[in-house]
Amino acid sequence: MAWIVLVISGVLEAVWATALGRSEGFSRPGPTIVFSVALVLSMGGLAYAMRTLPTGTAYAVWVGIGASLTVVYAMVSGTEPVTLARVVFLLLIISGIVGLKLVS
């Protein structure tokens, strides 16, 4: 169960990171509310997962999922360029996340 919560929390990290960028310094209410709710849920899920998973592994997986999804969303939405190098390095992050799960 902790792994499922951790993955959901990683997805929510990508949500709050994206909303933070769209909030324009917390001047736009919609993205600011999304940021706030997603941040609380993401951190709460990470805290829950860390009750049973090793701290370093849980944190690395959480950050890796959030960072990867944030960049993928930015590339899909056209706010960041899609390059071979970016895709390769994203795949390396994802393989690291999978590797941490396999050895835990």
Rank of each mutant, 00 (worst) to 15 (best):
W3S: 00
G10C: 09
A19Y: 13
G21A: 11
R22M: 14
R22T: 06
S23K: 10
S23F: 13
S23I: 10
E24Q: 15
E24Y: 14
E24A: 13
E24M: 09
G25A: 10
G25E: 13
F26A: 08
F26I: 11
S27G: 07
S27R: 14
R28I: 11
P29G: 07
P31E: 07
P31L: 10
V37K: 03
A38E: 10
L39Q: 07
V40F: 14
M43Y: 15
G44Y: 10
A47V: 15
A47F: 12
M50F: 06
T52E: 01
T55E: 13
G56S: 05
T57C: 04
A58V: 08
A58K: 02
Y59V: 03
A60N: 06
W62A: 01
W62G: 01
W62P: 00
G66Q: 03
T70M: 09
V71N: 08
V71T: 12
V71D: 05
Y73L: 12
Y73V: 15
Y73M: 10
M75F: 09
V76N: 07
S77C: 09
S77E: 12
T79A: 13
V82L: 13
T83G: 14
T83H: 09
T83Y: 09
R86P: 04
V88W: 07
F89V: 09
F89G: 06
F89S: 07
L90P: 07
L92V: 14
I93H: 04
I97Q: 00
I97K: 02
L102A: 00
S104W: 02
S104Y: 01
